[in-house]
Amino acid sequence: MKDKLVAFDMAALLDSDEAFSEYLSQVLADGDTDEIIRALGHIARARGMTQIATFSGLGRESLYKALTPGAKPRFESVLKVIRALGIDLSAHPHMVSR
C-alpha cells in the first residue's frame, strides 16, 4: 500500500489575525530574511493576493514575484505589503551579546 503525500499549504492554516500575528512574530524573532518574505507571502495568500495588491498599490504579478522564496524585494515594497496586511511593527530593545 502506498501512502499519498498531500501538499502542505501554510496559508490554509492562517485563518485569523491572531494566527497571522503569531506566525509572523515567530519568523521575525528567528531573523531569517528569506523566511520573513516567505511568511509575508503565506499571509498575503491567506488574506487574498488581489486585495493585498490593491491595498499595497503593487501589481498582482509584482506582488507574487516580490514574495517568492529567494526574491530580494525593495524594503519599500515590503513595507507596502505589511501595511496592506494591516500589520503594525514595533521595536523593542533586547540584550545583545558582546
Rank of each mutant, 00 (worst) to 15 (best):
L28N: 10
D9L: 12
D3T: 15
L67V: 07
G41I: 08
K2Y: 14
I43T: 01
A91S: 12
R38C: 12
F20G: 01
A11Y: 03
V6T: 13
G59R: 02
D15P: 00
A44V: 03
R60S: 06
G48F: 05
A71Q: 14
I82N: 02
S16G: 04
A12E: 14
F20T: 00
G48Y: 03
G31Q: 08
H94T: 09
V96L: 05
S77A: 11
I36F: 09
D30N: 14
R74I: 09
E61G: 08
I52Q: 00
E76P: 05
H42I: 05
M95D: 09
P69A: 12
L13Q: 09
L24I: 10
A44I: 04
E61Y: 06
D30Q: 15
T68I: 03
V81C: 04
V81W: 00
A19F: 03
L67A: 05
S90D: 03
M1D: 13
L79A: 10
V6N: 10
R38W: 11
T33E: 15
H92S: 14
S77M: 03
G41D: 11
P69F: 11
I52D: 01
R74L: 14
V27M: 10
A91L: 15
M10C: 09
E22S: 05
E18T: 04
S16M: 04
P73F: 12
A66I: 07
H94G: 04
S62L: 02
S90V: 02
I52A: 01
S56N: 01
L89R: 08
D34K: 14
M49I: 11
S16I: 05
D15I: 10
G48R: 12
V27P: 06
D88C: 01
A71T: 13
A11P: 01
F75G: 14
L85V: 02
L58R: 01
L5Y: 15
S16V: 05
Q51H: 06
R45Q: 12
A39V: 10
R83G: 06
V96E: 09
T50K: 14
A39T: 11
K72W: 11
A11H: 06
E18P: 00
D32L: 11
D15N: 13
M95F: 11
Q26P: 00
A39P: 07
G31I: 09
D30F: 10
V78Q: 07
D30H: 14
L40D: 08
I87A: 07
S25R: 08
A12G: 06
E76L: 12
A84W: 02
I36D: 10
Q26T: 10
A91F: 15
K4W: 13
L40A: 13
I36M: 13
S90Y: 05
R83A: 11
S90C: 01
S21V: 05
Q51P: 02
P73W: 11
F75H: 15
L89N: 09
R47C: 02
A44E: 03
D30T: 11
S25V: 00
S62D: 09
R47V: 06
A84L: 07
R47Q: 08
A44G: 02
L89K: 07
A71V: 14
R60M: 02
G57T: 04
V27D: 07
H92A: 13
I36C: 14
V6C: 08
V78M: 14
R47H: 07
K65P: 01
G41M: 08
T54P: 00
E22P: 00
T50D: 12
S97H: 05
F8I: 15
